[in-house]
């Protein structure tokens, strides 16, 4: 077994979905990828939201940049 495979298997318990009400199987691999990627995408989205707010403030367009502004 490659080292990366070993590390992934160690990670599995931390990413397993356990929503008992879901009728769909979210898929282990899909959840792991989603959680890892979303951390980065969420940060980028926050920066993007602030950037838009700043551009909006400077150009005077739009009172708020995004309804989904960072909390």
């Amino acid at each position: 077994m490659k080292m990366t495979d070993f590390m992934f298997i160690l990670l599995v318990p931390f990413f397993m979905p356990n929503d008992a009400h879901a009728y769909l199987d979210p898929g282990t691999g899909s959840v792991i990828l989603q959680v890892v990627a979303a951390g980065v995408l969420g940060a980028l989205f926050t920066i993007k939201s602030y950037w838009r707010a700043m551009v909006g403030f400077i150009t005077g367009r739009g009172k708020k940049a995004n309804d989904t502004e960072a909390k």
Partner: peptide, 23 residues
């Protein structure tokens, strides 16, 4: 096959609402 190999109770995957918005 990873899910089937787990014998321990699993922890919940966590991601913030902002991470979900980013996705």
């Amino acid at each position: 096959d990873a899910a089937g190999k787990q014998t321990e109770p699993v922890k919940v995957a966590r991601m913030s609402a902002q991470a979900l918005r980013g996705l």
